[in-house]
Amino acid sequence: MTSGFEPSDATGRPAGLEDSVGASDVLSAIRSGLDGMSESQRRVGQLFLGDPEWAVKANVEEIATRAGVSAPTIVRFARAIGCEGLKDLKLKLAGALALGAPFLHRSVHVGETAAEVVRNVTGSMTTVLADWQRRLDPGELDRAAAAINRARRIDCLGTGATSHFLAQDLQARLFRLGLTANAFSDAHFQLVAAATLTSADVLVSISFVGRMPTLLRAVEVGRARGATVIALTQARTPLAELAHVVLPMDVPRDATMLVGTDAYVVQLIAIEVLMILVGLRQGTSLIGRMNDLHHVLRTYGIDREDPSVLHAGWRQMLASDLGLPETG
């Protein structure tokens, strides 16, 4: 049986597609044709679906480099989905974006079903993560982990709702590893913390935007005191320029949020990887400490599945406050 997307003529167009597609159909043609494409063409298709606004503006060399394919593959891909070439594909893609719903999500368009929205959003995220992983330098992650592991103190700075949460998340993870770590979101405390840093310390600054004036000032102060500055931010931002180690968080622009889901997820993954790399450097000594920590939490923690633990904790607190004898 012939596949629905096997080449049917000398142009290499898959069977089942019209000789040409309109602006409103080009994204659907890419999505429906992925399964029948070669691996290299599939990477191109995923790139176009994951970041169509960038693809419209990029030239053939930039697309080929980012997808990890040759320039002729781009042309073959365009013809495979019913376009005359890359120029025709980009014109139709621009039209599709104009007809779509970019104010909600770059990969979601008017008229799509719930199932299509789920597939397109998750597919877009998968593409973004794969692209971010290819461009991330493991050597810089190693440098950051090594600096954190040997630091006397690690201060995590984040300004804004998302960055504040991420700074606290990193601090909590490092704290569990037995490291002296703090998290600050208040501009005043950030300056105080930065002023007390030394060359034995690390300052981790988290800001996807990378342009917050109060955060930049605190980073300048910390760097002047000799601290090693690690930045989780977009490349070529003022914050990136100040850092000794930059972990770039470059992802497509979000349609609705300044710091969108893509940026949120890659920063969380970077923090997770950093924590793991630091833990691995601590060797077998970490195993005993983590086992002890887990034992304490299982024994005394109140966020367990067994509700009696929580109830017992409240009974003890009430008995203490009211001066009553504790009951078993």
Rank of each mutant, 00 (worst) to 15 (best):
G283K: 03
V128Y: 01
V21Q: 03
D250H: 05
R217I: 06
V221G: 03
L129S: 09
A98L: 12
A187G: 05
D142H: 04
R304M: 08
A195E: 15
L293D: 10
V273R: 08
L268M: 14
G36D: 12
T113N: 06
L197G: 02
S185A: 15
R236T: 08
H164D: 13
D306P: 01
G210H: 04
D131R: 12
V251A: 06
T180Q: 13
E305R: 10
T261N: 05
W132C: 01
N120E: 13
W314L: 14
A98R: 13
L141Y: 10
S8K: 11
L297N: 04
L239I: 05
I287K: 14
S3G: 12
L136N: 09
A80F: 08
R281M: 00
G50C: 03
I206L: 10
D131H: 07
A130N: 11
L177C: 09
V44I: 15
F103K: 14
V118A: 13
R31S: 14
G68C: 04
A187E: 01
A167R: 02
I230H: 06
P138M: 00
L177S: 10
S3A: 14
A195D: 14
P238S: 05
V266Q: 06
L17E: 03
V251W: 08
H164T: 15
A147W: 00
E18L: 11
G100L: 06
H109C: 07
H311N: 13
E84S: 13
V229T: 05
G222C: 06
L89A: 09
A96D: 00
T2R: 12
P52N: 04
A270L: 01
G85S: 12
L274P: 07
A23L: 04
S20T: 15
H109R: 14
S107C: 09
D306C: 00
I81T: 06
L157F: 15
Q171R: 14
E326H: 09
T228R: 12
V75K: 06
A263M: 01
S124G: 15
P248E: 06
W132G: 06
A224P: 01
P238N: 04
D262L: 00
L277Q: 11
P307H: 09
M249R: 03
L277V: 02
